[in-house]
Design a protein around this nucleic acid. Structure first.
Lengths: 190, 190
DNA sequence: TTAATTCCTTGATTTTTGTCAAGAGCTTAA
DNA sequence: TTAAGCTCTTGACAAAAATCAAGGAATTAA
């Protein structure tokens, strides 16, 4: 059983082995080199991938600055969900921060799964609902917490990320400037 | 065809009339009086409703203040999605801001739809994905915009709300204090 | 190895936003 | 009708965070 299949099984509970294999077989193991783009803002999102190893950054260029929306780690799916599902132009650019190994599926194959595995749309619903809940928490953190509190919360839950990616990306993701981020870190150490 | 059925049809495209009716028949037209609670933080979310008329506020009490997460308007579903789907305690309190007429469905009936209407999980997936996209936009607004910019964007798209609900709720929802909100409004007028 | 980049830190300053306090206008209920 | 609550506004001030500018450390490329 691949890591992807294991993930789907562990996340969604009982799925028959045969169906799990059907899903798994549509994903192809692929390498993405550091710096390569998985998706660019404005293009259609034609792929969905599951990170086996490596890190990817989801961001967007605005006229004045670059905004990191999220950094994806192994064990998670990556795509511009809105573009993939509703066939709209991608809002996000997705780039490999390190060399990555991913399980990739094309939009065409992705759209076939629903016909092959009856429970697929239910699984998808659960998965997307989980993502929705995570975003709700994130909104809540912006409504109720200071930059320092957001930093602390994120640091506690993602310590390992801090020595793997440029910190300015994390700062952006948490909604603060690199300077503010740096000052908060200094305070935390002492 | 009820407004609810019309909404489901318009939103999700082709659904057979019979199935639409099956779904619609499980929702019961109910009144919720101003000030009544649809759901309280900590309880299980046992219902999902679709607002026919009236306004509901989704919020949470924190030790120091009350935070409004969202104000729901006619034509939308209301529930604590995470609690409804994953059977966790509700994070949000949901209260009627005005007298409301809603189509209500119990969790038990809601969970039956999947067996009665094959496409239901697909429809749900699309609906939740849409909600996810809206939250993505909202996060983006917190990463990239000032309080004033968030105000302007929201005002442009929700003018009608401003004379129907206490403005402090809108302020909270946009992540600012009532005082800041008030000062921004003053500036906008002049 | 050296030069060029990129990334992070730090200080000084400005801007934005929050806090505290008071009061005015409405609404609601006795 | 009057008093009690809300709600919103305003001012003075404080705190948080952004901006601007410079320099140092680390990484990358020639």
């Amino acid at each position: 059983m691949t890591e992807l299949e294991h993930y789907i099984k562990s996340y969604f509970g009982v799925v028959e082995a045969k169906e799990l294999q059907t899903i798994g077989s549509l994903f192809k193991l692929t390498e993405i080199k550091k710096g390569d783009y998985f998706l660019k803002t404005g293009n259609p999102c034609n792929d969905l991938c599951f990170i086996q190893s490596g890190l990817m950054r989801i961001y967007v260029d605005t006229p004045d600055k670059e905004l990191t929306q999220w950094i994806s780690t192994p064990g998670y799916f990556v795509a511009d969900l809105s573009s993939l599902i509703f066939e709209t132009p991608a809002r996000w650019t997705i780039q490999a921060l390190t060399d990555c190994v991913v399980y990739n599926i094309t939009k065409q194959d992705y759209n076939k799964i629903g016909n092959l595995v009856p429970q697929w749309h239910l699984l998808e619903k659960l998965f997307i609902a989980k993502c929705f809940t995570i975003l709700e928490d994130r909104i809540f953190s912006h409504l109720s917490m200071s930059a320092e509190e957001r930093y602390t919360l994120f640091f506690e839950n993602n310590k390992e990320l801090f020595n793997q990616v440029p910190l300015q990306y994390i700062a952006s993701m948490l909604g603060m400037t690199p300077e503010t981020f740096s000052r908060i870190r200094k305070k935390q150490v002492s």
